[in-house]
């Protein structure tokens, strides 16, 4: 008879919460009628890989660690994985590789250092963190006080529940190094032009597509405000309307704002289009001073790229070795 997995209420105890650590699943969808935004992982690529390496369901809840500084004490025998930003992970003082599964046992100390490249890292546990969903999702949106543990970012002394697997996997899994992303300080964002694009003259559109912008000090999970060549719209008063992920809003000062996962659901500034989601993953790994430029892409090309990316994700080779 096989053993049942056992739910451990304090599978991980938070010794230090780090700069900003959030419980995230894939996001909260279909709740815009209440004014609730999507939330979800800022870098979906790294998030899905953390769950994939552990054979978790894709939507399983993981920790989004911003920059680092998190320390957890394990009260469980299980497996974990860290993907995304290059944050050094030490288990009981010993450095462990990212993009790879690791065994943990009761009493282990998991120490997450500070990012050497990138900003957002994802720590997943076998089976996912077991936190009650609110409005269909665990994703924490601090601005809305929704999701996570009581709508808050992870706090010191929080207890994170998880299942103790009935048996440990026989192999460790690892994403081949050549397939791990390099996070750079120079990103090219493909944009599907749309919304009020016609209210920007051809000259203004060219300015937008040929200039280089810098990420300002105002960047977070809601949006990235850029600095550079201002562009202007002929749009006058506008009624508030629904905002898609990645929408590039141009306020009266002409400096673009890219709206991210925790964006408000509706807004009234003109928008020139929306950044392609696969490129938002790269932007989410960048902070102040990053150089950003734009390139137009059609909806059909974006569609094609999404399907190719999904196929590559499914086909990617995972290295399995004995522990």
């Amino acid at each position: 008879m096989s053993k049942e997995p056992l739910l451990i209420a304090d599978a991980f105890f938070v010794e230090k919460a780090g700069m900003l650590t959030l419980l995230q699943d894939a996001g909260r969808f279909g709740q815009a009628n209440l004014g609730l935004t999507h939330g979800g992982p800022a870098d979906a690529h790294a998030f899905y890989w953390a769950n994939r390496l552990l054979d978790n369901a894709p939507n399983s809840c993981a920790l989004e660690i911003t920059v680092g500084g998190l320390i957890l004490k394990s009260n469980i025998s299980s497996c974990i994985c860290l993907t995304g930003a290059n944050i050094p992970l030490k288990i009981n003082g010993q450095l462990r590789a990212n993009w790879q599964t690791h065994q943990v046992k009761k009493g282990d100390m998991l120490e997450f250092g500070f990012a050497e490249s990138g900003i957002k890292a994802y720590m997943a546990v076998a089976g996912g963190f077991q936190v009650d969903k609110q409005f269909g999702s665990v994703s924490t949106v601090v601005r809305e006080s929704v999701g996570g543990l009581s709508g808050l970012a992870i706090q010191p002394e929080d207890k994170l529940p998880a299942y103790e697997p009935a048996q440990q996997p026989s192999h460790k899994k690892q994403l081949e190094e050549s397939q791990q992303p390099n996070y750079s300080d120079d990103v090219l964002l493909r944009v599907v032009l749309g919304y009020q694009v016609d209210s920007f003259s051809k000259v203004e559109q060219l300015k937008f597509l040929t200039s280089s912008y810098q990420v300002s000090k105002q960047w977070d999970r809601m949006g990235y405000r850029l600095e550079g060549e201002p562009i202007s719209s002929t749009q006058t008063a506008m009624l508030s309307e629904g905002i898609a992920l990645g929408a590039v809003q141009i306020p009266p000062d002409g400096q673009p704002i890219i709206l991210m996962h925790d964006r408000q659901t509706i807004g009234g500034y003109p928008k020139i289009g929306s950044v392609f989601s696969l490129d938002l993953n790269k932007l989410a790994q960048c902070g102040q001073g990053t150089s950003v430029s734009f390139k137009a892409i059609t909806m059909e090309d974006a569609h094609n790229e999404l399907h190719l990316d999904r196929y590559r994700f499914e086909q990617a080779s995972i290295i399995e070795t004995a522990w």
């Binding site: 969808f29 279909g30 815009a32 999507h38 009624l239 508030s240 309307e241 629904g242 905002i243 898609a244 992920l245 659901t265 509706i266 909806m299 569609h303 999404l306 399907h307 999904r310």
Partner: peptide, 22 residues
């Protein structure tokens, strides 16, 4: 359909690109 956001005079329709195209 992933999300529908009605507003004053518009409706934003967000769809699952693996199930539907524009």
């Amino acid at each position: 359909i992933i999300e529908l956001i009605p507003s004053y005079a518009s409706l934003l329709v967000t769809f699952d690109p693996f199930l539907l195209d524009h």
